[in-house]
Amino acid sequence: MTVVPDEHLMTLICDACGDSVQASACVLPDAEVVWTLISEQGWSGSPFATGPHRCPHCSLLPVSGGGTTRRDDHGPGGILGIDHLDDVTIVVATGDIDLDTGDTLRAALCHAADMGGHVVVDLARVHVIDSTGLGLLVRAHRDARDRGATLSLAAPSRFIRTVLHTMRLEAAFPVFDSRDEALAQLSRKTTADSAATPAIASARSGR
């Protein structure tokens, strides 16, 4: 355990330097879930208490011997490509979505938002997502909603689905088994919205 719960407080311990911070955290839904604490304190790492976690200072430091901190061997993460199909931008991610790849995903999501349409994040090749990645997706989802668009997740792994379920975020995003399924649903939504617009205009003119 790298997070120690005590009544309404939790102690977050850095796996790199041993530094710690104690703060209250919203527990969702149990003491194993510490994503809110990590996000509020600016730390990086797993959304679960079992870690790994790094303090803001150590998150910026390279690991001795080169490279960055990684507890698996999934290979480097990043963005494989950004595709545009009608009014949908598809962001294809790969590897691990974490602190190391956060800037790349953030840039891709900003580009998708600039396009103005719906967004599909293809997670078929993504193995792990940490608190940094979750935060980016949540913010991008809210931005899409504010401009009347939808951000969907396609083909998430079993691990990512578990994370979303545990964090109670599965209802926040439309989640589909494949990219094609997500695109088909968005196409039906666009068609329905287009059909509804003339009817609304007609009803207003008849007042």
Rank of each mutant, 00 (worst) to 15 (best):
H8R: 06
M10D: 02
T11Y: 00
T11H: 00
L12Y: 12
L12K: 00
L12W: 07
C14M: 09
D15P: 09
A16P: 01
A16L: 09
C17H: 10
G18K: 14
G18E: 14
G18C: 13
G18P: 14
D19V: 03
V21P: 01
V21S: 09
S24W: 05
A25T: 12
A25I: 05
C26F: 04
V27M: 12
V27L: 15
L28F: 08
P29R: 00
P29A: 03
D30T: 13
A31V: 15
A31E: 15
A31R: 14
E32R: 15
V33A: 01
V33K: 01
V33E: 01
V34A: 10
V34N: 11
W35F: 09
W35R: 01
W35D: 07
L37A: 13
L37K: 04
I38P: 00
Q41P: 00
Q41A: 03
G42N: 04
G42L: 07
W43A: 08
W43G: 03
S44M: 14
G45M: 07
S46K: 05
A49D: 14
T50W: 08
T50V: 10
G51K: 00
P52W: 09
H53P: 04
R54Q: 15
C55T: 04
P56S: 07
H57T: 13
C58W: 08
S59N: 11
S59M: 11
L60P: 02
L60W: 06
L61E: 15
P62A: 10
V63E: 08
V63N: 04
V63T: 08
V63C: 07
S64R: 03
S64M: 03
S64T: 11
G65F: 09
G65E: 08
G65D: 09
G67D: 11
T68E: 13
T68G: 04
T68M: 10
R70Q: 06
R71M: 13
R71Q: 10
R71T: 14
D72L: 06
D72I: 02
D73P: 00
D73Y: 07
H74N: 02
H74A: 05
G75N: 01
G75H: 06
G77D: 03
G77R: 12
G78H: 09
G78A: 08
L80R: 15
G81Y: 15
G81V: 15
G81F: 15
I82S: 07
I82M: 14
I82K: 09
D83N: 08
D83R: 10
H84Y: 07
H84C: 05
L85W: 04
D86Q: 11
D87G: 05
V88L: 06
V88I: 12
T89S: 15
I90W: 07
V91T: 13
V91R: 12
V91A: 08
V91F: 12
V92N: 12
A93E: 03
T94Q: 12
D96W: 03
I97C: 04
L99R: 12
L99W: 13
T101Q: 11
T101D: 07
G102S: 11
D103Y: 04
D103E: 13
D103G: 05
T104S: 12
T104N: 06
T104M: 13
L105H: 10
L105K: 06
L105C: 02
